[in-house]
Each structure stands twice: as C-alpha cells, then as structure tokens.
C-alpha cells in the first residue's frame, strides 16, 4: 500500500469532516430532503433549519448530490425556467 499525496489530502479531509456525535444516517436524511430543499430553494440556510442534516450532507457525497439536484430543479421551477421545457 502506498498513498499518493493527493490521496492523503482526501483522507485528511475525510477525517476532518468526521463528527463524533451520533450520526444521522442516509435514510433519515432522505426523509427530510424534500422539505429542506423547498426552503433552501426559497433562500433559507440549511444550518439554520436542520443542522444535523447539514452535518450529514457535509459527510455524505451521495446525499449531497441528490440534495443539490433537487434544489436546482426547484429553483428552476420557482423561476419559471421549467415552463419552456417539454
């Protein structure tokens, strides 16, 4: 095994973002995602709404990717950008 320095950076980042408290899992995060995304798409900050979900999103790329996608679609919908599609 030999770590490259680029990989080392990723590893350190991953250790730094780990949290000691009880972690919220992906299923629980997913349950909150629609409500949270709606409010974030309207301009609210995640940390002000559900900090524990925000912590999970920092540590879980999969959930974060899905959250960002949902927010992007909602913002497009709110601004009328979806009207010309389809």
């Amino acid at each position: 095994m030999s770590l490259h320095e680029g990989e080392l950076h990723k590893l350190i980042d991953c250790i730094v973002t780990s949290h000691y408290d009880d972690c919220l899992d992906c299923e629980t995060c997913a349950r909150e995602l629609d409500c949270l995304a709606e409010r974030v798409a309207m301009g609210a900050k995640i940390n002000d709404l559900l900090p524990e979900v925000a912590t999970h999103l920092c540590c879980c790329r999969d959930c974060f990717e899905e959250f960002e996608a949902l927010v992007a679609i909602l913002r497009a919908e709110n601004s009328g950008q979806l009207d010309g599609i389809g």
Binding site: A30, E32, L33, D34, C35, A37, E38, L70, I73
Partner: peptide
C-alpha cells in the same frame, strides 16, 4: 405531507 407533493415526487 411535509413538502409539496410534487417536491416529494421530484425527490
């Protein structure tokens, strides 16, 4: 029912 139905479906 925490969000709009369409938001939940989009999720």
């Amino acid at each position: 029912g925490d969000s709009r139905f369409t938001t939940w479906a989009t999720k």
